[in-house]
Amino acid sequence: MSDPSTASIVSTPGAHPTDSAAPATAGQPQSNEKPRGLLADAWRDLRRKPLFWISATLILIFLLMAAFPALFAPGDAVNGSLSRSLDKPSANGWFGYDVQGRDVYARVIYGARASVVVAVLSVLGTLLIGGTMGIISGYRGGWVDALLSRIADVFFGLPFVLGAIVILTTFNGSGSGNSKAQIMGLVIASLIVLSWPVVMRLMRSSVLATKEADYIVAARALGAGTGRIILKHLLPNCLAPLLVYGTIMVGSFIGAEATLSFLGVGLKSPVVSWGIMISDGQQFVRVAPGLVFFPAAFLVTAVLSFVMLGESVREALDPKLR
């Protein structure tokens, strides 16, 4: 029940003949242009899209923010002085101060790190586990496929938010005294555990679609080993949809991390995270709406950038949408 998105976001690439309705171009190989590859074609399309450049730039900024927050904000994100509690935005604190007198601008900047780290690591883990399972399942077939698919169904049947809350309260309940890194690890683990079936299904159908392709059969007939076929032939073909999905998933995981922190089961203070800031700022929204607005704006922008990037790459890769 986790994610209704997947079915629609990722369409397995089949063999769609380019639907050029023009019979004019049929059967005229006389044009001197070299046939362009799918990737070169996609890149040509992508370069012209402002949405692509905007989202790529924003992502770059967010990544820099996560790596070197001090570049963007000289202030202190963790310690504040109560004398500045709930101060309005000013030249010193652009976004104002929260109830404990901490600089909201600095906190919003520093908050990028937790979100980006959690999201990127979870996506990598999800792709790795889901991808591996999908390849095994699709390539081996038979009872292995049946077993792995049922296991995936089990995890898929868990509602995403519910599952994450249960896992996190179980291992990260109040008083469990986990360290910062442990908490982060738990959040990452729960996101992976609940999301890998999606990637597995995607990968599995991708493998099934290409497995019987003539060139794979030919490679096998020429005596190529299983490992070689997977690495050299299957993987490159399945990679494009996987990368697209991964990019979009970074966005949704940033949102998921914030949701869990907002609910109080994810990251916890003193870790700085957008979700925690929104959750903390909630009760002061009447006096200081900025406490909610700024972290929410950053959160939404970050999620949007990744989703937008993924979408524009997907459109560029899909000849049907041209």
Partner: peptide, 18 residues
């Protein structure tokens, strides 16, 4: 639709409620 997909539910809910 891009916005709706990108906005986490708690943000949408909170903003609309507010």
């Amino acid at each position: 639709t891009l916005f709706l997909i990108a906005l986490p539910v708690f943000v949408v809910g909170f903003v609309l409620q507010w």
